[in-house]
Amino acid sequence: MAADLDVVNLFIIAGGTLAIPILAFIVSFLLWPSALIKLYYWYWRRTLGLQVRYADCGGYRFCYSCRGKPGMRPSILMLHGFSAHKDSWLTVVKYLPRHLHIVCVDMPGHEGTTRTDTEDYSIQGQARRIHQFVETIGLNRKPFHLVGTSMGGNVAGVYAACYPSETCSITLICPDGQLLHPRETKFDNHLQDLEHSNYTLNIPLIPTTPEEMEDMFRLCSHVRFKIPQQILQGLVDVQQPHITFYQEVFMEIFGEKSRYALQEHLHLITAPLQVIWGKQDQVVDVSGATVIAEELSGCRVDLLDNCGHSVVMERPCQTAKLILEFIIMQQDARGSKKKSS
């Protein structure tokens, strides 16, 4: 009988021990979903072996995460999109070999990187800041592979044009900005409505409610999935303190100074270029890939079926595979040229 009581007590203690973290998780999920989202990113950085670091230059601080050390393959610098952060690359980094040197930086003013009222957040201004970052951490000791998605793709293209000796190859994923002759998208219609209203309407890429957050996911993703209301609220809560800043950046990157930045710099890009685009992109039409390929001979174009603007989120494994294939192909081509010469 005493033994039976011991077993019962053991189950009660074990159940109570497990109930505490489970209850804490449920309460956190319901009351502080934004805290859980941050914890999620922290967990996956740790799991994938990424370390968060800071680089200071003249009073300006860059926040970035990195994994590995420079080796035989070129280092990879990854630039995220508008209103995102370095952790948005975690889904892709998961499928890249651990021996590669990978650097994911928070774009100017985003997440842990310095935000100032006097900063130039135009595409050209951001490219100059990223160059400052590259010089600060010494990433340009030898040419690296540059990857950018959406706004980051626009910046990556301008960067490669302005600093050609620093990039050995480039991958642009659904780069934003306007290119000559692409078809209009659902987002283009939103932009026209915004301009006609003198920007008094809500900006689709800056959601302020769970409903608007869900609408943004529908706009950016072809894949339809149901996101719990608590998670949507958590994502809104994370963005809420930065709304004014995002509005400022939006006006900069879609203003006259930046709108055609990529188009105007395409002819200056000399490094081998890869373009990855979702065929169902509703933000920047996939026809932009053809415009880029026509401007740059030898450009590799990879179009993804049943995929929208959020390629990194919708097709992380395929994206990592395509990037790695391109890097290896370019490195092999350079090796062949050296042998023949």
Rank of each mutant, 00 (worst) to 15 (best):
V275A: 09
P272Y: 12
L36E: 04
G49H: 03
Q282P: 06
M213Y: 08
V291W: 12
V158P: 02
Q230C: 09
Y41G: 06
Q331E: 14
K337I: 14
C220F: 07
R300C: 04
L219E: 06
P272G: 09
E166Y: 10
V283H: 04
P108N: 12
G278W: 10
Q178A: 09
Y64R: 07
Q318H: 08
L50T: 00
Q230T: 15
W32P: 00
Q263I: 03
V291S: 10
E214P: 01
N154K: 06
Y199N: 07
P164M: 08
R98L: 03
W44K: 04
D176C: 15
K338I: 15
A271E: 15
Q126W: 04
D106Y: 11
I227E: 00
G138R: 02
V311F: 03
A84C: 09
G278M: 07
S75W: 01
T200W: 01
G288A: 10
R315L: 05
V301D: 13
Y260V: 05
G157I: 13
A19W: 06
M72T: 14
P74Y: 03
C299T: 15
I170W: 02
H99F: 10
V52P: 01
Y40A: 01
C66D: 09
L304W: 02
Q282G: 01
R218S: 10
V283C: 12
D193C: 09
G234K: 13
D106M: 08
G152Q: 08
M72C: 13
F254P: 04
I20N: 07
R218Q: 12
Q330L: 00
I102E: 06
R183W: 10
R73E: 02
L304V: 11
Y199V: 03
V27D: 00
F326H: 10
V286Q: 09
H309L: 03
D176Y: 15
G15N: 04
V134E: 08
M313K: 10
F11Q: 04
L194G: 13
E195N: 01
A320G: 08
R61K: 12
S341N: 14
T113L: 11
H265A: 11
P33L: 07
P21Q: 02
E295F: 12
L205E: 06
P175S: 09
P74G: 06
K321F: 00
W32K: 08
D285Q: 07
